[in-house]
């Protein structure tokens, strides 16, 4: 790109006759600098504003608050990019598992009348520990760990070993 122009600025430097009137260049530059500074600073200032949501969780999420669930009921929560199911069983124990049916990936739900996890798509049933009991599901639901810390119920990926 450089080889054709032997002397950098001379070639394109505006000649005296076409030189804009005094002050124009400064005004142009000033406007440009201000505009770019604004384009630079505005996003950064907006970036400083803390968003509404505190975070997106991680391997462990707050699935619910203590008291959100009545005994013998369940709740779907977001676990990363998939739904999870939190159950408070009739005997007062929290259990959590993936809510993605192992048959055709429908979202399962807790059935208080059956005291079982149930998939509405093809009537698949799972036990409270996630084991497939009847219907088409080929595999158990992935069980998660539940911890109650303060009044928050944390669900986390189960670690092996």
């Amino acid at each position: 790109m450089a080889t054709s122009e032997h002397q950098l600025p001379e070639v394109k430097r505006p000649s005296a006759t076409t030189l804009p009137r005094r002050g124009f260049v400064e005004a142009l530059l000033g406007t440009g600098f201000l505009a770019t500074a604004a384009a630079f600073i505005y996003p950064v200032l907006r970036y400083f504003v803390p968003p509404q949501a505190v975070d997106l969780g991680g391997d462990s999420v707050v699935a619910a608050k203590v008291g959100d669930l009545k005994p013998n009921s369940g709740k779907i929560f977001r676990f990363g990019s998939r739904p999870g199911l939190l159950i408070l069983s009739a005997d007062g124990q929290y259990r959590a598992m993936s809510a993605v049916c192992t048959h055709l990936s429908c979202t399962v739900q807790y059935r208080p009348d059956l005291k079982e996890v149930w998939c509405a798509c093809h009537n698949g049933k799972y036990g409270l520990d996630g084991r497939n009991i009847s219907g088409p599901p080929p595999r158990p639901l992935l069980a998660y760990d539940v911890q109650v810390r303060g009044d928050e119920i944390y669900v986390s990926q189960r670690r092996e070993g």
Partner: peptide, 28 residues
């Protein structure tokens, strides 16, 4: 660094957070 959290359980989510929740986070 204002929003990033190092750590296997949070790093990905915090970048996702920067990209989706923080204004102009995607740009930065």
């Amino acid at each position: 660094l204002l929003y990033y959290r190092p750590g296997a359980s949070e790093a990905f989510e915090s970048v996702q957070y920067i990209m989706t929740q923080v204004q102009f986070g995607w740009l930065i």
